[in-house]
């Protein structure tokens, strides 16, 4: 197998720290977005209970969300665009995969999860698979799934899992150190195996549960927490695809 490296202690470190701080800000926004969702759902429920169906539909709630977010995206927008993280891991064919280089020029969705995850991971991947299969969907899109469970997720297991959603999805793995470096490069908290027992084969893994989205210009603009709807992904996909140079500004 070819040597695989993840960028550690590179000049990126400063940027990475800055990025981590920005993610922290994003966490607050994410919380606000959740509250807004809950409020929208409550309002919809009240409207329905009042026997009035106009305005209680999803699109109204979505519009309100997009407007309230202060950005053109329906995902949770970052406070400012972030550079694509620099890391190299191993794909399901056993080849080195330089994330930034391989996805250069493509709208890219990056997600750190694991195949034994029954609740969140399949939902995100299924939604991405479905919107990309729609007639007329943009073709210049890459979905990259990084398994944060190297002990159980062999390349074969990852491939079988991803093929359930879309055989074009890229699956990556690496050593625990490489995977930690990749998550840090992306400004994310490092996933954690939730067991102390080395014989426990049914452990779960705590991981960052939102999907990160990067435009063809190589900048990340938004992320998608659990609970994101397909329509929200689809809406933002169009906007992201138009951002071809770093000078392009997201426009609805």
């Amino acid at each position: 197998m070819a040597p695989v490296t993840a960028t550690v202690g590179s000049p990126l470190t400063r940027a990475t720290i800055g990025q981590a701080i920005r993610w922290a800000v994003v966490e607050e926004e994410l919380e606000m977005m959740r509250s807004k969702r809950a409020l929208a759902a409550l309002l919809a429920a009240i409207t329905l209970a009042a026997g009035c169906t106009s305005g209680g539909d999803d699109s109204a709630a979505d519009d309100e969300q997009a407007a309230g977010d202060g950005s053109v995206f329906e995902g949770v927008a970052f406070t400012e665009p972030v550079p694509k993280p620099d890391f190299t891991l191993t794909d399901t064919e056993g080849r080195p995969y330089d994330f930034a280089a391989e996805t250069d020029g493509a709208t890219t969705f990056l997600f750190f999860g694991y195949t034994f995850c029954p609740d969140i991971c399949p939902v995100h991947l299924n939604q991405l698979g479905e919107i990309l299969e729609r007639p007329g969907a943009p073709v210049n899109v890459q979905v990259v799934f990084v398994s944060v469970d190297p002990d159980r997720d062999t390349p074969e297991v990852i491939r079988d899992f991803l093929d359930r959603f879309d055989s074009d999805f890229v699956g990556l793995t690496g050593t625990p150190e490489e995977l930690a470096a990749a998550q840090e490069a992306a400004g994310l908290p490092v996933a954690f195996k939730e067991t102390d027992d080395p014989d426990d084969e049914q452990y779960t893994v705590g991981h960052y549960a939102a999907v990160l989205a990067f435009a063809p210009n190589g900048l990340g603009y938004t992320q998608y927490p659990m609970g994101t709807k397909q329509t929200e992904y689809a809406h933002d996909l169009e906007i992201l695809g138009e951002l071809r140079t770093v000078d392009d500004v997201p426009a609805a």
Partner: peptide, 18 residues
């Protein structure tokens, strides 16, 4: 093989776990 009752929650550390 087994059925477990879980709740997915997001921790203060930014990690989501079951």
């Amino acid at each position: 093989d087994e059925a477990q009752l879980h709740r997915t929650t997001e921790g203060d550390d930014g990690l989501t776990r079951m």
